[in-house]
Simulated assay, not measured.
Amino acid sequence: MKLALMMSMLCIASIGVVGCSSKLTQPEEYSGFLKDYSQLKEAKSPSGVEVMRWVDPKLNINQYTSVYIEPTQLYPKPQPTVKIPQSTLSGITSYYDQALNRELSKSLPLATGPGPGVIVVRAAITAVSTKTEGLKPYEVIPIALVAAAVSTASGIRDQETGLATEAVFLDGGTNKIMAQVVRKGTGKPLENDSQVMKSTDVKNVIDGWASDMHQSYLKLKAK
């Protein structure tokens, strides 16, 4: 009876740990980069990922003939650490710029600055993180729980890498907000808590963001 009760409690606890990790950016995680978060709604990106998004219902995307991508910001300004050094932060923003230019230029020529008929893309990296991965369902067996705890304490347990972004799309002539998006993603896991995070660990996340922005434009264009 005691064993059954313990197993039930362990199962409930493990479900709680898994359930706490939301794919959506929560309000308490908003950085302040966007001026207004009140109109954001839960939505699915073209690739099927959950995001928080708002698009002006009166938007006429066909009036825009080029796109200007501002340099990606880090917001709020982070303090580099041994685990996430400045070289990693700079590499992330640099790659975000490259990915946005690569994807968005597939449908629109790149402008050298804002102006009438120009879509201005203003994006920021609002979180860069590493954390020990949560307990997985198969680790509810007591012996595995003990092993997991030992692995975490000794630093050999996988470390999850995370990234978050907030982006606003503006009319280059009027500076009016056309759309906003807030989302996050998980990159490649690090092998242990002493491994330094690199920008390459989250390239897959950034590629997905940039691709979704391009596909969103195509969807709006097709309406």
Rank of each mutant, 00 (worst) to 15 (best):
109 P>K: 13
103 E>F: 01
55 V>S: 01
195 Q>W: 02
149 A>N: 13
212 D>A: 09
2 K>E: 13
41 K>G: 04
140 V>H: 08
7 M>N: 01
134 G>P: 01
76 P>F: 11
217 Y>K: 08
156 I>V: 14
174 T>I: 06
127 A>P: 00
179 A>L: 02
161 T>K: 11
36 D>N: 14
74 L>Y: 12
216 S>H: 05
20 C>G: 09
36 D>G: 04
116 P>S: 11
60 N>I: 03
69 I>T: 02
82 V>Y: 12
104 L>S: 07
41 K>T: 01
27 P>D: 06
83 K>I: 11
153 A>F: 08
92 I>C: 07
180 Q>F: 00
178 M>W: 04
1 M>S: 15
117 G>F: 04
184 K>Q: 11
73 Q>Y: 03
110 L>T: 15
85 P>R: 10
174 T>D: 11
48 G>A: 05
124 A>M: 13
47 S>W: 02
178 M>G: 06
126 T>G: 10
133 E>K: 07
19 G>C: 04
176 K>S: 15
103 E>Q: 15
208 G>P: 08
127 A>M: 08
182 V>M: 04
19 G>W: 12
138 Y>M: 05
197 M>W: 12
196 V>A: 12
203 K>V: 02
1 M>Q: 10
163 L>Y: 09
201 D>Y: 14
93 T>G: 10
217 Y>P: 10
147 A>R: 07
197 M>Q: 09
217 Y>R: 12
35 K>Y: 07
15 I>T: 10
147 A>H: 03
193 D>Q: 11
196 V>F: 06
203 K>W: 09
210 A>D: 10
182 V>H: 14
104 L>G: 07
42 E>Q: 15
168 V>T: 14
7 M>I: 11
103 E>G: 12
25 T>W: 00
99 A>F: 03
53 R>L: 07
7 M>Y: 09
92 I>M: 11
43 A>M: 08
223 K>C: 01
27 P>H: 01
216 S>L: 07
27 P>C: 03
106 K>V: 09
221 K>M: 04
